[in-house]
Design a protein around this nucleic acid. Structure first.
Lengths: 231, 231
DNA sequence: ATGGCTTCATAAAACTTTCATAAGCGTGTT
DNA sequence: AACACGCTTATGAAAGTTTTATGAAGCCAT
């Protein structure tokens, strides 16, 4: 069982240290970001199990970070606890509206913090970071993929593509959708490019005797899917 | 099992001797520093399992020492018991805020001291100081690393880098993360500098016939990882 | 002076994207 | 059924881009 991975987004260094330190002592793996930009980057790099998100942040505000996380499919269900100073209470309601799972009014005691974190995690147990589909295994921490125990070597884009497909198995996605989710945002790339990456993914995935795990749906797109029985 | 290693930071020589002597009789290995500067130096040299830290110190104050230790990732979780004279009680709360694990009001009896030390150590058992990965062994007490019995000579930065990687094997870290964790705090260093240190680490780690233990993950970073089977 | 850290320039890989072309599929027609 | 057309996908390869590895020089501190 992996340790639960938290992300603390807080710009006040003293408070951040305090929170991080205490949560670490509770046995969590804690990362820290001091502004919204950094937070989003961290989430992109390694998906945490829960985010503690300060309301007031330099640059992108906490609420904006929250909104953006909710927008993206990958992070839409990611538990978020908002932290706000007294006097911003009115906002806390807006925070919940926006999709925060809980909120804490500063100053708060560490025990309160622990309790809330535990409660949220009980409600939404941390997803296993290892994705599986048929004989495919993706280790998202070590950034490794194997099929049948054989280690695959994927390029960054193929990796993201496969990751996205493994997050939604047996679901057909159009090229647009795949571009949107598996490519760096705001890249304007030819739709046909997806085909090429799907091809390389297939080449790497499918050893001679193994069935193709990627299904082409004519005029629609592709899906990661259980292969049909056929001899 | 190694003996538990304590660091006593206390500027009053008489009290320091008393504490050290009694703790040694309890079977602990005890070191002593008489000011903040020396304390930080001692910690840098050999990571203790617990620190007894006097509040009032010449030069860098106890609270400042505590803060600095908490700042650095390597020492962020290091248990600290603050020692303060009566009348500084108000500060003790601040001490806990800052991240001390416990505090003792002088004068205190040796039995009280033993009890607190034991309690803290039970809560945070001293981590094993020897890290292992494949045929790599890092002795954090002796500050030595060997591979296959061959002693490696690493620069300070390479050492910290390897230490961090060995603490989290098979995990990919971005250059940002590596800088954050393996460099002295607040060093603004070019991201690419990590590459150079990784290279030197590889050069030192990998003898001609040995496989590379460091895996490059394009567009992400590096990981300490079991090498692929290949001839 | 030596050792170690950082930076930079450049070489070398690795990866993306695009394009041209072949192959495949479905549908309607004969 | 068989055929052919139009549209969609697969494939191979080249060009372009990004990322990493490397060698070497400068700098700082001991």
């Amino acid at each position: 069982m992996q340790k639960t991975d938290l992300l603390v987004v807080e710009d006040d260094p003293a408070l951040a240290r305090l929170i991080c330190y205490n949560l670490e002592k509770q046995g969590y793996t804690v990362r820290h970001a001091s502004d919204g930009e950094e937070a989003l980057e961290q989430v992109r790099q390694r998906h945490p199990d829960l985010i503690l998100l300060d309301w007031m942040l330099p640059g992108i505000s906490g609420i904006e970070v929250c909104r953006r996380l909710r927008e993206q499919n990958r992070t839409a269900a990611l538990p978020i606890i908002m932290l706000s100073a007294r006097g911003e209470e009115a906002d806390s309601i807006r925070g919940l509206d926006i999709g925060a799972d809980d909120y804490l009014i500063k100053p708060f005691g560490m025990d309160t913090l622990f309790a809330r974190v535990k409660a949220i995690l009980r409600r939404a147990p941390p997803a296993d970071k290892t994705l599986r589909f048929e004989d495919l295994v993706m280790d998202r921490v070590g950034h490794k993929v194997e099929r049948n125990g054989r280690l695959l070597s994927l390029g960054p884009t193929e990796y993201r593509l496969l990751e996205f497909l493994m997050l939604h198995p047996a679901t057909v996605f159009s090229r647009e959708e795949l571009l949107k989710h598996a490519w760096e945002r705001s890249s304007c790339v030819e739709l046909r490019t997806v085909d090429v990456h799907i091809r390389r993914l297939r080449q790497t995935l499918n050893e001679a005797t193994e069935p193709d795990l990627i299904r082409t749906v004519r005029a629609r797109g592709y899906a990661l899917d259980k292969p049909l029985e056929q001899d």
